[in-house]
Structures are given as C-alpha cells and as structure tokens.
C-alpha cells in the first residue's frame, strides 16, 4: 500500500488567516485603553492652600492629584498639564524621571506653584483663588485630551475638590483632604459586612451561588444537547452517503462492543506487523539558508 501526500494543505487559506488575525489584533488594540495614559484621571485638586499640605521646600501652594485607574503601570512622562485652553503644551511633564511611572491604582501629586525649576512635580502655573480654574491633562502628542476639569470659583481655603471615589464620576468637597491617597478610604470590607448583616446563616449565598453554578452547567447542557443532535444527524448523513448500513449502539451490549473493539485492535496490530511495506511519502520543505548551503561548506572544484 503506497500513500503519497504531496498536496500542500490549506495554502490559499494562510494569507487570509494571517490578514484576519492581524485585523483582529489591530481592532483589539484600539479597544484596549488599559495601561495607557488615557487611564489617568484628574482626581483631586486644592486651589487655596493656607494651612494645609506642605511641599519638599516647606512651601504651601495649590495642588493637582492624578490617579491611574488601570491595572498596569502608566508612564506620564512626556504628557502635558495645562491651565489654558489654547495652550495644551503649557507644562511638559519631564521624560526619564522614574517617579512619573505611576503604579496601578496609585496617585501622583503636582504642585501648582508656578515654579517649574523646583522639579518634575512643580508646575509652571498656579491655580487662582476667587475665579474659575481650568486644568487639563494631554497625551504626549499634545492634541489628545486625556482628562480635564473646570474647578468652580470661590473655593474655600484648605478644602479640596475631588472625585467622591477614585477615578469615578461624581465630585465633592473634602474638608479632610487626601493628597496622594484614596479619596474614599475604607476601614471595613463592605461586601463582607453586607453578608454578615443580611446573610448570617449563609442561605442567601448558597441559593445564589448554586443557582449560578446550575445555570452555567445547564447552559452547557443545552448547547451540547443540540450539538449532539447535529453530530448524530451528520454522522447518519455521512454513513448514508457512503452507502454503509448503520448499527445503533443501543442494539449491542457492552460485551459485544468490547469484543468487536478488541478484534479490530488485534487485526490492526497484525496488519501492521505483517505489512511492513507501508510507505509514506511526505513532502518536506526546507527553506534556503546560507547556514545550510553547500556553496559555503564545500570547497570549490579545483580549476584545471
């Protein structure tokens, strides 16, 4: 018995498959903002700092807190902070400072003191008391607005304006300011307290969880029940097309099936032992490489 395989498989499909995968990857890229500067949010600001947080120079000034909402580290080096709508590149956040790499769900504080020479985190503009302040964070292209905030006028001294919960919508005033830390600090686990209060016996959890487990496996059951029907129908169709008689498994006992299987197995083993002339020819493709080229490994023929 000679088996010869020379036909390349699925050749025309390959470029299409590669194109499809590349397209999906590109599409996925545009949909995945995590770990990029777009994950940064303006989180809390203090405009009037009279008796509040002090910087490394012992000075008091307004400050702006940014928050990384993503689960990955974000480098904000090269981005821009501004307080002018027409000048998005007013303060370029220096590149190469290790401290501009913001860890997941962490904060960074910029001092709005108008003295950029004091370091990376000191802005070249200040927040003005008694008037509306606009602040914005732009991506490193200076065009893509990442986040902006219009701070209402008449801010009280030492009262900050921030998101009620880090990174989320909803703003409020904080008499207890929270620079470089969570706006909402939790001293308890709400989920667990909720279960302790409302489900001390654990029956609610049991019913909910078992319902979900059953639902999940019930969905699988429904899907594979239909898949099984289709598979059986397809099998019958193929058998009819091939002109073979079908034998229902239920007509035969387990012992009979086991005996048939054993006989088939033995037959195949014997056939393999006896027919040692089985020849399989497979096309082997070897790409050219100078490392395997005979040109470079053999001496040239001597010239006569």
């Amino acid at each position: 018995m000679n088996r010869i395989q020379t036909k390349p498989r699925g050749g025309f499909l390959r470029p299409a498959a590669i194109f499809l995968i590349a397209a999906l990857l590109l599409a996925g890229r545009t949909e995945a903002p995590a770990q990029r500067v777009t994950s940064m949010k303006i989180n809390e600001v203090l405009v009037v700092n009279e008796d509040n947080f002090v910087d490394d120079y012992g000075k008091r000034s307004g400050w702006i807190e940014l928050y990384n909402t993503s689960a990955g580290t974000v480098n904000i080096g090269g981005c821009f902070l501004t307080n002018e709508r027409g000048n998005p590149k007013k303060y370029p956040i220096p590149k190469g400072d290790i401290l501009t790499r913001i860890s997941p769900r962490q904060h960074v504080l910029f001092w709005a003191d108008g003295v950029a020479s004091r370091g990376t985190f000191h802005l070249n503009f200040a927040l003005e008391a008694g008037q509306e302040n606009y602040i914005a964070l732009y991506d490193s292209d200076g065009k893509t607005l990442v986040d902006s905030l219009l701070i209402p006028p008449a801010q009280q001294a030492d009262v900050s304006y921030g998101r009620s919960k880090d990174g989320e919508e909803g703003w409020m005033y904080f008499t207890k300011v929270t620079p470089s830390t969570n706006n909402l600090t939790l001293d308890k686990n709400e989920k667990i307290d909720n279960f302790k209060t409302n489900d001390s016996l654990g029956l609610g959890m049991t019913i909910t969880a078992m319902a979900v487990v059953f639902l999940g496996l019930f969905f699988l059951y429904l899907v594979f029940k239909q898949v099984a029907r289709l598979a059986i129908a397809a099998g019958k169709f193929r058998a009819q097309k091939a002109g073979h008689a079908t034998v229902h498994g239920s007509d035969l006992s387990g012992e009979v099936l086991a005996a048939i299987s054993a006989a088939l197995y033995e037959l195949n083993e014997d056939v393999h032992d006896i027919e040692r002339t089985v020849l399989t020819i497979q096309k082997v493709k070897r790409n050219y490489s100078p490392w395997s080229s005979k040109i470079y490994s053999l001496r040239e023929n001597p010239k006569k």
Binding site: V213, F214, L217, Y221
Partner: peptide, 20 residues
C-alpha cells in the same frame, strides 16, 4: 451525555453546606 453536567453542579452543595 450532557445531562450528566447537572450532577457536577449538584455536588457543589458540599461547598455551600460547609460555608453555612
């Protein structure tokens, strides 16, 4: 025999029985 999946679900009562 996909209906056997539901037995796998039922046995998870062990988890929630112990939880209670």
């Amino acid at each position: 025999n996909p209906k056997l999946m539901l037995i796998g679900a039922a046995a998870q009562f062990g988890i929630f029985g112990a939880y209670v």
